[in-house]
Design a protein around this nucleic acid. Sequence first.
DNA 1: AATCACATTCAAACCGCTTTGAATGGCTTC
DNA 2: GAAGCCATTCAAAGCGGTTTGAATGTGATT
Lengths: 341, 341
Amino acid sequence: MNLKELARKLDLSPTTVSRALNGYPEVNEATRERVAAAAKRYNYKPNTRAIRLATGRAMAMGHVIPVATRHEIVNPVFADFIAGAGEVYSRNGYDMLLSVVPDDSEERAYRELKSRGTVDGVIVHAPRMNDPRIALLTEMQIPFVVHGRATGAAHPYSWVDVNNRRAFQRATEFLLDLGHRRIGLMNGLEFMDFAIRRRKGFEEALAARGLTPDPAIMVSEEMTESAGYRVGLAMLALPQRPTAIIASSMIMGLGLRRAIEERGLRMGRDVSVIIHDDELSYMRNGDDLPIFTATRSSVREAGRQAADMLIGLITGRLASPCEMLLEAELIIGQSTGPCPH
Amino acid sequence: MNLKELARKLDLSPTTVSRALNGYPEVNEATRERVAAAAKRYNYKPNTRAIRLATGRAMAMGHVIPVATRHEIVNPVFADFIAGAGEVYSRNGYDMLLSVVPDDSEERAYRELKSRGTVDGVIVHAPRMNDPRIALLTEMQIPFVVHGRATGAAHPYSWVDVNNRRAFQRATEFLLDLGHRRIGLMNGLEFMDFAIRRRKGFEEALAARGLTPDPAIMVSEEMTESAGYRVGLAMLALPQRPTAIIASSMIMGLGLRRAIEERGLRMGRDVSVIIHDDELSYMRNGDDLPIFTATRSSVREAGRQAADMLIGLITGRLASPCEMLLEAELIIGQSTGPCPH
DNA sequence: AATCACATTCAAACCGCTTTGAATGGCTTC
DNA sequence: GAAGCCATTCAAAGCGGTTTGAATGTGATT
């Protein structure tokens, strides 16, 4: 069932039927209702391909996922972010297009999306410092929103980010208030923008109390269970071991907890731990009450916001450099306690 | 730059240019080269929207992700599967379309994909027993491939799956060979098809040695760290505790390990553990040598195979009920050892 | 020299929708 | 009663490709 057929059944021109369905004002209300009824009855759904060609809009948003040829790492927060963004796209009639490309041909992927007109806009994932994609997309005039920020970008750009600095600052302050003075930082790899900001927040909180961070207990590593374990063991083996540690992810925290327990210590009593919790759906921080004290911020919600912003930019509802800073919540769990004397 | 323009520059008709670029035989070789050169020079990329309308093919594959309104669970293997499938799509000129929908309107989502013609085929994720989607898609005549199988499906259908039964059978045999007799099973929720098969493999291996499975040490739970921990603790607290446990996922295994260590036992010596390892990129089973003995099978590879199969079905390279059973590898790690006397 | 087969090329229709610009007809207004 | 206005409706021209069926030119065949 297509427009022409439907029009014939209704004894109307395709023009009028199209307008009736798209809410144009110059259609008689009675006619509009007749059309709507027929459309429902014959289960008419306008062909997406035709709409796209006619309007010149793709009604789709792109997410380019670079797959490192070496590391093969798929960002673990990715699935949840996508789920959030996808919800919003669906609600607004947009499709979500994923483009998985080797990371050395990311630029080509964007150029193709543009020249073939497959998408109306894109979301940039996992920005790094001085991320080249921002200049590229700006120059190509593809509307885009960055999930996170890219320190050192020359052009203004739109983004949705968690206040990582503030989150880690608060976490650190919380530990300081509990009396901790030797606090360790188990950060993600510091070419990622968010890791840099977290470190900054951590250092600022210490500095505000006149403390200087000790490089021996500040580590930047891949955010895996085994790295958490390894680094945890190392920190706890120091002559002056930290009484509290902040870890950059739930999964790192699990490794850290293992290290703590293996050394015969108890988390929350002997060593306090705060993690950052992205609220990944397959990795919950406890079912009812949280296992870890955490700075919590939903990646899925960030996905929703980013998608909404992108749609806003494209439809003109929002003006171009559009920024949204989400604050993380500090959740008190069982992994923190006062500094043991 | 579009076809008409390019044709004008070449002093050819759009017909010939189109054919030259699409490799039709009735084009003079010299002309073809001239066209190819011009296309490259002017960076001509045919407009996807136009191709789609003209050919009636969407050149896109759909993945419908139901988002449970209550549980909000995004399948953790999803990201890696997608990465694998996406690679293959890209290589073959297909787009990957993700549709995130509330799980009560999944059927509607499929119907829309069909009637709007947005995709040429779909991949069905996480099949359950008697999964209704198989009948639905068959009836709707949408080409599809299931990742996994759905016991009890009335129609034949195409699928790519890991031999879960065989994997768990082998894992169980391996433990039996090590002398274990009380073996626990920490399974996923048994409305998922793969969980049912795993249980079957486990029971068959026991039965083959004349052992009857003890329901007290066979648990079906969500595959989370905390479930692994909780169930682990419970099993180990039994008067006749198991000397070995098979866990359905890496993440469950982490929880189990924690339980073991918390009870002052050592994994691999006091309690042997085998997990199933999907080789998720953000959750590796050890960097160099594996932490857990595991039945290993790459979800990403399954994604590649499924995508390739779907393309094959659509292009006619493959005939319809097409099946592919991937065997899991048994990886020996440090988590298993002989049964303590 | 006429006929034919073959290799190339092209004009035009088509895919299914949107959108422009014109047409229709009823109702006011002068 | 003519002119003007407004509310509706429509025919036709896109959008940018693919594809059908016809046209053209060439050399071989008779």
